Simulated assay, not measured.
Amino acid sequence: MGGTVRQSDVDSFSAITAGMASLTPKQRSMLLVLSDYGEPATISVLSDMTGLHANSVRETLSVLVEYGLVRRARVPSASRGRPAWEYESSVPADLSVIMREFSTFARAVCAYLETTSATPVADAEKIGGLWGQRLAKDSSIALDGSEGSHEVREHPLARLRILFSTLGFGAVAGADDQSINLTVCPFSQDGQYPNPLTCAMHKGMISAMLAVLSSDKVDADLAANFPGAPCVISLAGEQMR
Rank of each mutant, 00 (worst) to 15 (best):
F169K: 02
N55H: 03
R6Y: 13
V75G: 11
D94R: 12
S139D: 07
A136H: 02
D221I: 08
N195M: 06
F226P: 00
G68A: 08
L157A: 02
F105W: 10
L182M: 10
V10G: 10
L182F: 07
L64M: 01
P40A: 02
D94Y: 09
D9E: 15
G237C: 03
K203Y: 11
S29P: 00
I16K: 14
V184D: 08
L34I: 13
M201G: 03
N225T: 03
S179G: 12
V91Y: 05
K217H: 09
Q7P: 01
C199W: 02
H53F: 04
W85D: 14
I141V: 09
S140R: 15
S47P: 01
C110T: 07
K126M: 04
S12R: 13
A229Y: 01
D190Y: 05
S207H: 08
L95H: 07
F187V: 00
G128T: 04
D219R: 07
E125N: 09
P76G: 09
A136R: 02
A21M: 10
R58K: 12
G168I: 08
Q133P: 00
R58V: 03
L197Q: 04
K137L: 05
S165V: 02
R58E: 05
A208G: 01
K26I: 15
G2A: 15
E151Q: 13
P227A: 04
G204H: 07
M1W: 03
L135Q: 08
A41D: 04
E39S: 09
A142M: 08
F169C: 00
L64G: 00
L95M: 13
L167T: 01
D176M: 07
K203F: 09
L222D: 01
P196C: 09
V75K: 13
G51V: 04
A136G: 12
V121S: 13
L167S: 01
